[in-house]
Amino acid sequence: MVKIANRLRGLQQSTLGAMTVRCQELGALNLAQGRSQVPPPASLLAEGSRDFKELGHSYSQPEGLAVFREAVSDKVKRHSGLSVEPATQVLATVGATGALAATLTALLDAGDGVILFEPFYSYYLSALKMQNLRPEPVRLVGPDFAITEKPLRAAINGRTRAMIICSPNNPSGHRLTATELEIVSAVAEEHDLLVITDEVYEDIYFGPAPHLAAATVGNLEERTVTLGSLGKSFSIPGWRLGYVCGPELLISAIRIAADALVACAPAPLQELGARALSLGEDYYRDLRAMYDRKRRTLAEGFAAAGLSPNEPEGSYYLFVDCSRMGVTTGVEAAEILLENSLVGTVPGEAFYLAAPDRPYIRACFSVPDDVIAEAVSRLVSGV
């Protein structure tokens, strides 16, 4: 009998995917999967429809089209003040997940330890296991989920080679502060760690303070690889178009890995992606205003149902404490919400290695307004 690879041992369909299937079976509203169900920019769709047949439809070079990398460099500079050379410090990837896979493949070896801050995006864990890397959790405490120095230092050991941070965070919506990033910088420099920063939600934040790119703080720039994506900012996750930025030496290695894994990102979509990245600031302000409205409406619905939603500073998720339901786990809470209200959410356990301290669920508000309104109605009447 053909043997299954050991690296798949213990891996199975993600909790997010499994809940989507349950929602389909029961006819429930799906607030589980974070798949950007709001319309992409109308101008982008119009230009794509008009020009698609004229775009290049062969491979691009492994690092991506120059026009795309230049657009990434320009946008990163405008929004974060971080300067990256498009020819040597930017790489087009098949989504941010492709950027992460190539980074782990290029820069870490089997058995290396990687710090994960709990709660973390569940695919980080899958990606580490596929590379035979060791997840090393650091538990962050709600409701703010801030990084503090003592638990981080306690998690470092002789095998630790890297850490993954995410800001704005999925699932908590927390935005890392300069103080937190200074802690990350000091610990990373002391132990010579690679820092992988997932900033795919950089354009979705609430409040006046702009996005703070990790690589602009302390001494992080020289050891930080930044993952980005067009999927969240432009509601085009199905395009699978992302990028990675960082020091030339690291990006050169990641380019080799990305080439071996997938050859290149979709060339015609890179051309259209470059146009999306050039949209003006009015687009981003409208994007944030839209998500802020959706966030408030759904949070009010959970609160009206007697639950305790957090106040995310960014991303498009609520992380809801369901203790008032009388449950002890997020799994129980998500099942009750699904069965009683026909609203699908993700159990908080999907974002932790060990059981979380509270029965959390995550709910996505990147859905149409009528879906949010119906979800609120069902929550209030069903919980």
Rank of each mutant, 00 (worst) to 15 (best):
A289I: 09
A333M: 06
E136W: 00
A354Y: 02
R293W: 03
P347M: 01
R7F: 10
C364M: 07
V343M: 07
A110V: 00
F68G: 04
L212A: 04
V21W: 12
Q13Y: 11
Q131K: 14
R139A: 08
Q89A: 09
L8E: 01
P119G: 02
A213T: 03
E118M: 13
D51P: 14
A28D: 11
F365Y: 15
E199Q: 13
A350P: 03
C264E: 07
I147E: 04
G48C: 03
G314R: 12
L133Q: 04
A110H: 08
E300P: 00
G273N: 03
A333G: 06
C364N: 15
V380E: 13
V94P: 05
T224V: 04
P151A: 07
Q33A: 14
A373G: 05
D192A: 13
P268F: 00
M1R: 14
G218M: 11
R69C: 04
L287E: 07
D282S: 13
L287T: 11
A253S: 13
P266K: 08
G34P: 10
V320P: 02
A274N: 06
G326M: 03
L82E: 09
M19I: 12
T328C: 02
A5N: 04
L298H: 04
S278Q: 12
A99N: 03
E118N: 13
R69V: 06
P368H: 13
K53H: 15
R7T: 05
D144H: 09
L91F: 01
V262C: 12
Y59A: 15
E180V: 08
L250N: 01
V90Y: 04
E70K: 14
D357F: 04
V346E: 09
R139N: 11
A214W: 00
R324I: 00
L230V: 15
R275A: 07
L140K: 04
E248S: 12
G246C: 07
M163D: 01
A305E: 02
Y201A: 08
E271N: 10
E54D: 15
A146G: 10
Y284K: 09
F234I: 02
E189H: 07
A299L: 03
E221M: 07
N170R: 10
A274E: 03
K150H: 13
P39M: 09
A71G: 10
S233T: 15
Y205S: 12
S36F: 14
Q131F: 00
L8S: 02
V141R: 14
T216S: 15
G238T: 14
E281S: 13
A214F: 00
R161Q: 08
T216M: 10
P168D: 10
Y291H: 14
A96V: 03
G10I: 00
A178Y: 03
R22K: 15
S308P: 00
P143N: 11
V371A: 14
L241F: 11
G27W: 12
K129M: 08
P268V: 05
E374D: 15
L107Y: 00
G314P: 12
I165K: 00
L29A: 04
L249W: 01
L91P: 06
G280I: 01
G48A: 14
L298M: 12
A188N: 04
F120L: 01
S43D: 14
Y317I: 14
G142L: 11
V380L: 02
Y59M: 15
P359Q: 06
D144I: 07
P171H: 01
F365R: 08
A178R: 15
Y284V: 10
A46F: 03
C23Y: 05
L128S: 02
A28Q: 08
V84Y: 11
G27M: 13
